[in-house]
C-alpha cells in the first residue's frame, strides 16, 4: 500500500521517476513505469508537459505557475498528487 505512506507536498521539488518513459500521444502522453510495468494515461498535453519538466522547477506549485492557467491549477495539483501516489513522480 505504497500510496498510503506518501505525503504529497506541493511546496517540494518533484521529478519524473527515472524508470518512467513518456511517449507523446494525440491525447497527451502515455507514461510507462519499467519497474512495476504500469501504464498511465496523461490526459492532456499540458499535463504531460508539466510532468516532463517537473524536475526543473523548485516545487510542484512553481511548475504549475509556470505554465498552467490559475483556474486550472487545483485540478492539476490533484492530478500530480495521484501520480505521486502511484510512484510515477517522486520527491527529490
Amino acid at each position: 500500500m505504497r500510496g498510503l505512506l506518501i505525503d504529497f507536498d506541493p511546496q517540494a521539488r518533484y521529478r519524473l521517476d527515472g524508470r518512467v518513459a513518456l511517449r507523446p500521444e494525440p491525447f497527451g502522453a502515455l507514461a510507462y513505469h519499467y519497474g512495476d510495468r504500469r501504464l498511465t494515461f496523461l490526459r492532456s498535453a499540458l499535463l504531460a508537459e508539466v510532468v516532463r519538466d517537473l524536475g526543473s522547477h523548485p516545487s510542484v506549485d512553481a511548475a504549475l505557475e509556470a505554465v498552467v492557467p490559475e483556474a486550472q491549477r487545483p485540478a492539476y495539483r490533484h492530478a500530480l498528487e495521484a501520480l505521486a501516489r502511484s510512484g510515477l513522480i517522486r520527491e527529490c
Binding site: 491525447f27 501504464l39 494515461f41 502511484s86
Partner: peptide, 10 residues
C-alpha cells in the same frame, strides 16, 4: 493495464 477510460479517451 491501469486506465480509467472515460468515453473521450476511449
Amino acid at each position: 493495464m491501469s486506465a480509467d477510460a472515460h468515453p473521450r479517451l476511449a
